[in-house]
């Protein structure tokens, strides 16, 4: 599998560390942490995921990927999304 890094270009999957579902947002108060930590999307289909380009530019990126076909639809820096 080749992951497109927005900075480095297309790279082999083994350069990356996988974190998973990019949708949970860290709660601000006391509530919602169980859901944040333990309930992640496990979609059969396109997911937004966090990957870390550990052996490249050291950026967290958000990849759109189909979990049934492994097709990758695109990627952006995770930080840009959060802004």
């Amino acid at each position: 599998m080749r992951i497109p890094c927005p900075y480095c270009g297309e790279r082999d999957v083994q350069e990356f560390v996988y974190r998973g579902d990019a949708s949970p947002v860290r709660p601000l108060g006391e509530d919602g942490f169980y859901e944040y930590v333990y309930l992640r999307r496990n979609s059969a289909g396109v997911m937004r995921e966090h990957w870390y380009h550990a052996q490249g530019c050291r950026n967290w990126i958000e990849v759109q990927r189909n979990t049934q076909t492994h097709e990758i639809l695109g990627s952006v820096f995770a930080r840009r999304v959060a802004l």
Binding site: V17, R19, R26, H50, Y52, A54, R58, N59, W60, F77, A78, R79, A82, L83
Partner: peptide, 18 residues
């Protein structure tokens, strides 16, 4: 060492990019 570097990058890039 590696895991914490990754964790710090996650914190500053994803959790609190501001």
């Amino acid at each position: 060492a590696g895991k914490i570097m990754q964790h710090i990058d996650y914190a500053r890039q994803v959790l609190w990019p501001d």
